[in-house]
């Protein structure tokens, strides 16, 4: 077993005594940098700065509880974002070519490739790390002496909303990995999230990454489709229209699966309320009325014509 023999109290005192207010100030700068660069090419630098916050304060977790919480929170965001279309982890592949279920683009048979799953695992790791720090962070004051602990934009991320954001990252990761039973248990306890009228408002309030939303809607669609088809439909549309609405397109096999459910598997058909044209995969609106497919309504599926004898 690796020895971790240092006394937490002694360490806390030493780190505090040695660093003065410098560590708090520097952490605040690092948090500000990472928070401002969640959606650009700076993910690797952001991750490095945030990990240094955790490493530099590891021996005094209570002293730095709030900054550690938000460092882990932002690391979960970094890896969730990277897992979509900005991966910087790599893995060695033995497969020549395939299209996976959680977001793999078709590979060209090269020895290494971006590790989507690695980022999903890392998002789970840091989201779990952050949630484990929540209680301590909630007891932390906003300042250390005269030093403000968080940059302005993180002050606007309420701690409870940040925690809800992390729960959504964890749940979406589970959904992407195929753990549907665990997802259902969590969503059973989240009636507001699976309510179409409230869902987007909640995601905005929680500060959930826009690009992650197609995965969230696909997850809610899968959860609802066996409970209430009419409620599942608008989530299906938001998921398949992710590229236009949220800047991230789900893998083709996921959108094909959703389209297949709408067109062939649901017990109802979804049609334009005016022209009665049925849902068309890939179309955004009715070719006749111009009404968005999001606003389509269910109607009974016509019975299939009976097969004639001999056919």
């Amino acid at each position: 077993m690796f020895a971790r023999t240092s006394s937490a109290l002694a360490c806390a005192l030493l780190v505090t005594a040695c660093a003065g207010t410098q560590v708090w100030e520097e952490n605040c700068v690092r948090l500000e940098y990472a928070s401002a660069h969640l959606d650009d090419e700076e993910l690797i630098r952001s991750a490095r700065r945030l990990e240094w916050i955790l490493a530099d304060t590891q021996e005094a977790p209570q002293e730095f509880a709030l900054q550690r919480f938000y460092a882990s929170f932002l690391l979960a965001q970094v890896h969730a974002r990277a897992s979509l279309d900005r991966p910087f982890f790599e893995e060695t592949s033995t497969a020549a070519s395939r299209v996976g279920g959680i977001g793999r683009r078709e590979t060209t048979g090269s020895e290494t490739r971006p590790s989507i799953e690695g980022h999903v695992a890392a998002s789970v790791y840091y989201a779990s790390l952050a949630r484990g720090m929540y209680d301590r962070a909630a007891r932390s004051g906003p300042k250390h002496g005269e030093v403000t602990l968080l940059p302005d934009d993180l002050w606007n991320t309420d701690l409870n909303n940040a925690d809800a954001n992390l729960q959504i990252i964890l749940t979406t990761a589970y959904a992407r990995l195929g753990f549907s039973e665990e997802v259902a248990k969590i969503l059973d306890e989240s009636p507001d999230l699976v309510d179409f009228e409230r869902c987007e408002g909640l995601l905005t309030r929680y500060g959930v990454l826009r690009e992650l939303r197609p995965w969230i809607f696909a997850m809610i669609f899968d959860y609802l489709k066996v409970k209430n088809e009419e409620s599942a439909y608008p989530f299906a549309i938001l998921a398949v229209e992710g590229a236009d609405r949220y800047g991230f397109a789900l893998p083709a096999r996921v959108t094909k699966r959703i389209d297949h459910w709408i067109v062939d598997e649901a017990s109802v058909v979804f049609v334009c309320p005016e022209s009665r044209t049925a849902y068309i995969p890939g179309a955004k609106k009715s070719p006749i009325s111009g009404i968005a497919q999001l606003d389509y309504v269910p109607m009974p599926r016509p019975a299939k014509p009976a097969e004639r004898p001999g056919e």
């Binding site: 395939r98 799953e117 690695g118 980022h119 790791y125």
Partner: peptide
Amino acid sequence: IDPHLYLQDGTA
């Protein structure tokens, strides 16, 4: 089959 074992931190 292309299996991987992902450690908690995402190392594959």
